[in-house]
Every structure is written in C-alpha cells, then in structure tokens.
Amino acid sequence: MFTVKNIRKEFIVDFWKDPFVALEDLSFELEKGKITGFLGANGAGKTTFLKILLRFIQPSSGEISYLDGVSTNDFFKNLGYMPERPYYYEYLTGREFLRYCGKLQNLKSDKIDKAIDFWTHELKVNFALDRNLKSYSKGMLQRIGFASALLHDPSLVVLDEPLSGLDPMGRKEFKDILLKVNQEFGCTVFFSSHIVSDVEEVSENVVVIDKGSLVYQGNINSLLDQSASKLVKIEVDRVSDELQKAEHQIIEKMTIGSRNYLYCYKENQEKLIKEMANSSINIISLNQESYSLEEVVYKLNG
C-alpha cells in the first residue's frame, strides 16, 4: 500500500537546545489487503508518524511512497482517516458533519445519505444523528469519527487509537467492524494501539516502534511466539511455606489487601496446581495474562 523509507522527524523544542528526535530512521512497508497493527508505548511516535503519512507535517528527512503508481491525489481520495481523541464541530449535528465529510469526498447527496444510514447503523449512533455533536459522549464521537472514515468506501483506513475511550462492548464492535471492512470490502487497515491483545485479536501483521525506532515488522504470531511465554495469574486463599517444592515455578507472589496472587508461566501451570492440591491450598481464580507491550518490546530489544 505504501513504503516508508528512512523517515526521521525532529521537533525543535527550545531554540538553543538540541532538537528532540521523535522518529529515527523508520522504514517499513504496509502490505495491501491486510490489517496491520501499529504498536508503541505512549510517546513512541505513532501519532507523529501518522501525521507524516497524511502530510499534516513534513518529515525532517526520508520519504513515503505510495505503491501501484498511485498519485498523491488518488491516495487521498481512497483514504479514510480518524485522528486520536476527535472532537469535531460542536454546533453541527452528526448528520451535518457526515454530509460535510461526504461532500469533501465528492460523493453525490443520495449516496452520502445511504452511506450515513448504513455506517451509523453498523456503529450504533444512528439514534443521535440529529443532535449537536456537543452533546455526544466520548464513545459516540469515536463512532461518528469512524463512520466518517468509512463513508466513501476507502481502500485504506488509517486509525489513530480507534479503541481508546470505548467500553468493552464498543471495543468488540469496533474490532468486528475492522474485520468486516477488511474481509468483505477488501479494505487495507492500519491502526495504532498500545494494547497488544487488541492488535493480536484482529491483525495479521504488526509494526512495533519504540522511542521512534522500528523494533519489529511482520506477522504478529511469530512476534508473540518469539517473545515472552504467556503468564498465568492464580488467586489463592492463602500463601504458605508448604509450597516450597514448587517455589521455582512461581515467578512472583503478591498480596493485595486480603487477596493473594501467584504468577507462573503457562507451561508450569499444571505442576503448580498439583502442588497446591497436595498442600490443600484452594484456587479462587485463574487467569491467563495477556502480553504487555513492555514485555514484547523488552524481549525484542534483547
């Protein structure tokens, strides 16, 4: 879809200080027709990169080229973009705002109205279309923003933290729609996030950046295989010394208030549980911990 070559971005923070390097020598390629997650911790440079991709800001050096000989103009015609934490024009209604977006895309009025109808139903904000955006909740704005990015059947959607600010139901709905536009409409999806499990659930590929530099690009499953093995968190009714035999299987013991937690690797889970049964320690709950971004990045950096 596009190729990124040696992008570097400096921000001048203070006139007499060295500039701050937000992105350094970033190169990767976005595969067409797939969902690609864009992972990085807060401040890693995700938003900065997306702004360069969309030409809101100029890179200090390097370039992005659009594949298939697509001209810049065509690229923007077929692009759907949603910025992070959008607010939009407070005094327009949802419908007015979406019409505005549709007209900017050169769509005909009847086509715009159809698309508004379709996507707001999908995103469950159709009930609020005739209210001013001022009265929308955070999640509703996010939904309207997502609808505005999908209105014109783009061939690429770029989303900056689309899942932040949504409740668990909303996160699931958004992920379903991401999969839907990809599978049914053949749309390439590129979205940023700092939550590994969200990216893992929907995307095939992942681009990971840390402090402005690329640390991984490629298939997400091979990334997760090569990084940390999964952790299991077990809540028990008491922690006692009788568990000594299993001591080396426990990574960490933790007591929060009156609750006791043990952490172990998934492969050691069964041995540990047997040991607990022998010591008549009761298990209250058992959860598989998902990967944290820190773990992944830490492992990648060696």
Partner: peptide, 13 residues
C-alpha cells in the same frame, strides 16, 4: 485542538 482540520485535510482538498 478539535482535530477537525485533520478530518478535513485527510480528504481530497
């Protein structure tokens, strides 16, 4: 601040 400019300028204009 409201990021509306991004919504507009990410379109063919």
């Amino acid at each position: 601040e409201s990021r509306t400019v991004y919504i507009t300028l990410s379109r063919p204009i």
